[in-house]
Design a protein around this nucleic acid. Structure first.
Lengths: 142, 142
DNA sequence: TTGCGTGCAAAGGTTTTGCATGGCA
DNA sequence: TGCCATGCAAAACCTTTGCACGCAA
């Protein structure tokens, strides 16, 4: 299970970049483009392999935003990991991804566990719907 | 907006099949295989086009279960459509997809709207986590 | 007859994999 | 030196699209 015997430059670069950008999301391609802009070339395959490893180690998370677009990754800070209140909202109209911390959601987790035996994973769960701006726009038209 | 001027055999077959299988989920490929087994050949492109139309009409829903596997579709019964309490839970371990109706979740929708201006779409939102069985198994190991 | 829906094949995009090379220990 | 990680290219996968044909109205 412990196979990451070697430390490499790409590994470090990647992790340090992600950790500096807490609270933001990235696709594999965006990461590659970022380093390319800095004249650092990292193969896309390497990025995918590193991200996969980091996900399995719990250092970053992977989100499914849209099935036809690329997966999003985000650094999991220490606070964030132990946080049952942090959820993601995805607007179906404008595509915005919103971070939300709310006690009510923590409560929801407790309820699902107590009443339904389901242990929710806030790090992977995404709520779909309409953000406030798009919802009010929609309201005008209907 | 109303362009479905024509009724076709494939259309009927597809909708009647999906409506008979309420509460179950299908991928486009599974649908194709089902009809092939019955010696009825429907092109995969046609299935995708029909499903897309049915989704935009609200007759079926589309779920993102895993980003690297195919999208899942499910018939939206009348009761189901007007239902703010119907949510899906996806077990990350055993892969099971659970249907859940719960007043608490309806309340959650109200809270998100009132406090955060976010209008949740229950038909697309999937909660990830561990089902009761997998959660208890995990508990033993830890 | 008109034109939408179908089917096939090709294209599109994201992610994975095989294999030779390079770098860490 | 030994072996993991990298990089490139090719493959795999799901989904969309272009185009000609067939079928519904």
């Amino acid at each position: 299970m412990q196979k990451s015997a070697y430390k490499t430059k790409q590994q470090e670069l990647l992790l340090s970049y992600l950790s500096k950008m807490q609270g933001k999301h990235f696709t594999a391609e965006e990461i590659r483009a970022h380093f390319e802009a800095k004249k650092i070339s990292i193969g896309i395959a390497t990025i995918y392999r590193q991200l996969e490893k980091l996900v399995s180690e719990g250092k970053i998370q992977k989100y499914f935003i849209d099935e036809n677009s690329a997966a999003c990754f985000e650094y999991a800070g220490e606070e964030c990991r132990a946080n049952e209140k942090h959820f993601h909202l995805k607007c179906e109209l404008c595509g915005r991804l919103i971070h939300l911390e709310c006690d009510h959601l923590e409560e929801l987790g407790g309820h699902l566990k107590a009443e339904h035996g389901f242990v929710i994973n806030p790090l992977r769960t995404v709520f779909y719907g309409l953000c406030s701006e798009c919802a009010s726009k929609e309201g005008e038209n209907e």
